[in-house]
Simulated assay, not measured.
Amino acid sequence: MKTLWQEWLGAIAFYTCLPLPPRWPMQLAGAAKWCPWVGLLLGGMLWGAQGVLQFLRVPPLVAGVGVVALWLGLTGGLHLDGAMDTADGLAVQDPRRRLEVMADSRVGAFGVMAAIIILLLKATALSGLERNSALVWVLVLGRLAQVWAIARYPYLKPQGTGQIHKASGCFPRDFWPSGLLVLLLIFLLPVSLGQFLFGLLLILLIPAWLQQQLGGHTGDTYGAVVEWTEALMLVAFTTESAS
């Protein structure tokens, strides 16, 4: 139990900007399996923020932008940065240079465009969302997609922040926290079968497509998996609201 608690704290410290007491023991190795639970924590906070903005009668689009801004603040833009670097790398025609471009700290035009599309999708989808509880599902499934990418596909760099997650993982055993959380959400925050299956499809297809383009994954592509899964799941929930 002590190790699990340290892994949980390590997941919060790595994947969020939430303050933790500096003396609390934390462990990054093995923390990746708790990513969906971090999504539960963040999703609950965003759900509350969205509810407060609606109570204050803030215009829907403004409220959507505000929630997305808080979203970025809570995560430090960690996943969005990875999505931007991944977009820049995929824009390179020579597959052998893609990892080199992704490692460059400078952001290119394709990275900026990817960020704009993701942020616009999220903000506009939030403005039309009827069930704020959907935010919990969105953040959980986005991080479940990351856990799947870590477990299923090779890591392309000998070093890097994502390497420790791949090296310390023990799959399929490490899927038990994610499975438990999904079961709890099915009972507590039920969604339609179509939405659930669409989320599972994204979890399978987005990491697989990036694997096909690059031959594996990096810390940047893990971030891209999270961001695109979240954005497209929000669109799916908004589509339900519109119908």
Rank of each mutant, 00 (worst) to 15 (best):
Q195P: 09
L135D: 01
Q50N: 12
G44M: 01
S127W: 00
G169P: 09
A151K: 08
L188H: 12
Q212Y: 13
Q146I: 11
L185W: 11
L141Y: 14
F171I: 09
Q54H: 15
M102T: 02
I186L: 15
S178E: 09
A151Q: 10
A134W: 15
A49T: 14
A123H: 00
L20R: 06
P19M: 11
M84F: 04
L42D: 06
D88L: 07
E100M: 02
L210Q: 10
A242D: 05
V38G: 00
W37S: 10
V226W: 06
A114P: 04
L232C: 00
I150H: 05
G43W: 01
F198I: 06
V101Y: 09
D104F: 08
S192N: 13
S192W: 15
Q27V: 08
W176P: 00
V226L: 08
R106K: 12
A145L: 07
G223A: 00
E130G: 07
A224Q: 04
P36G: 05
W37Y: 12
P154H: 05
Q159K: 14
T218L: 01
T161C: 09
L210V: 07
Q211S: 03
W228G: 02
G44H: 00
W24F: 14
P36V: 05
L121R: 07
T3R: 15
A11L: 13
L20E: 13
E7T: 12
L197Q: 11
L135E: 02
F55V: 11
A114Q: 07
A91N: 08
S105F: 10
A115D: 01
P22M: 03
L197P: 15
R57D: 15
K33D: 07
F14I: 01
A11D: 03
M26Q: 13
A125K: 06
V225R: 03
M113G: 04
I164W: 04
C17P: 04
V107N: 01
A145P: 01
F187A: 12
V92P: 06
G51W: 05
L141F: 15
G215M: 10
M26A: 08
G51M: 09
Q163D: 06
L74R: 04
S168K: 04
F55M: 13
A13T: 11
G89K: 00
T238M: 14
D88C: 03
M233R: 05
L9I: 09
A91L: 09
Q159C: 10
K33G: 09
Y222T: 01
L72E: 11
G44A: 00
G162D: 05
F55R: 15
